[in-house]
Computed example of a mutant assay.
Amino acid sequence: MPRLINKIHILSLISLLLIATFLAGCNSGKTPEAQPSNNPPAGSTPATTTPTPSADTPSSSTSQSVKITLYFPNSDASGLIPVERTVQVANQEVIKAMFTELSSPPAGLESPLPKGTTLLNATVKDGVATLDLSGDFKKNFGGGSSAEVMTMYSIVNTLTTLSDVHSVQFLLEGKKLDGILGSLDTSAPLTRNDSLISKTN
């Protein structure tokens, strides 16, 4: 009889332990997963994304240094003298820069541009540079045939140093003329004439 009571007590104790273990397992919950927060930690600085410039992004400065070759008539209008200069070119307007430099010859050489001549417009298409000059180009030209050749080919030889220019078409106040300064035909584009280039003054 005592053994039976001991077995009952043991079974009861085991049952209580099993029930306690089961209840403990039910009451223990899983720790919830941390959810990502949209707010940065206190004291931290939000990351800033810097846009990458594209090929179409305009530069803050469009001016560039360009080395050019100019041809100035010598003092007796017998040849053209090459002169190299470095200029600052804005918006790739190298022809306008060349034209401006031709009005400032070095000592001992002549400017090919008659006084008051203004470049009204300059375009390049299919290898032809078209220059639209003001009326002073014709009005203030006072030389003969030799000076005419020097004036025209000083400009032509200068512009054809550019890789995309093979000839020059002259206009006067927007009009194409047979001979802007006289006998030289300017109804069609003029091509480079290296035979006029002199190595000495």
Rank of each mutant, 00 (worst) to 15 (best):
V168W: 06
A97K: 07
T69C: 04
K96E: 15
A147N: 01
K125E: 15
N121M: 05
A122Y: 02
N74H: 02
P73N: 12
S104M: 06
D76Y: 01
T151Y: 11
G135K: 14
D132F: 01
E101W: 03
K96N: 15
I180N: 09
L119K: 11
L80N: 13
S134E: 05
Q169E: 04
I180K: 08
S145T: 01
N91Q: 05
T130M: 01
P114V: 06
S134T: 09
G144I: 12
D132W: 07
K115T: 15
N91V: 00
F137C: 12
T86S: 14
L109G: 10
T100D: 14
S103R: 08
T118E: 08
M98C: 14
T161R: 14
Q169D: 05
K96H: 11
K176L: 04
P114E: 12
K138W: 04
S163H: 07
T117F: 07
V128N: 03
L162F: 10
Y153A: 09
A77L: 11
P114N: 08
K138F: 00
S103A: 15
S145H: 07
M98E: 14
P112S: 06
K115Y: 08
S111M: 09
K115G: 02
T123Q: 13
S134Q: 12
Q88L: 07
G144L: 12
I95P: 13
L102E: 12
L113M: 11
D76C: 00
S111L: 07
V94A: 00
L119A: 09
G108M: 06
S104C: 01
S75Y: 01
S111Y: 03
A122H: 10
F72M: 02
A97G: 14
L133R: 13
T158P: 02
S145F: 01
K96Y: 07
S104G: 00
A129V: 05
K125M: 04
L181M: 15
T86N: 06
T118A: 12
K138H: 02
Y71N: 09
F137S: 11
G174A: 04
N74L: 04
T151C: 15
L177S: 10
D76Q: 11
S145R: 04
S104P: 03
T117S: 15
T160K: 09
L172D: 02
L171Y: 06
L80I: 06
V89F: 02
G144Q: 12
D164K: 06
G142F: 08
P114A: 05
A97P: 08
T69Y: 03
D178I: 04
L171P: 06
L181V: 11
K115Q: 15
V124F: 05
V168G: 00
R85E: 14
T69M: 10
V124E: 07
T86Y: 00
L159R: 06
V124N: 09
S75L: 03
H166W: 03
P106W: 00
L171N: 15
T100M: 07
V128T: 15
G79Q: 07
D76I: 03
S111H: 06
G174F: 01
S167G: 01
V83Q: 12
E110H: 09
Q169M: 14
E110M: 14
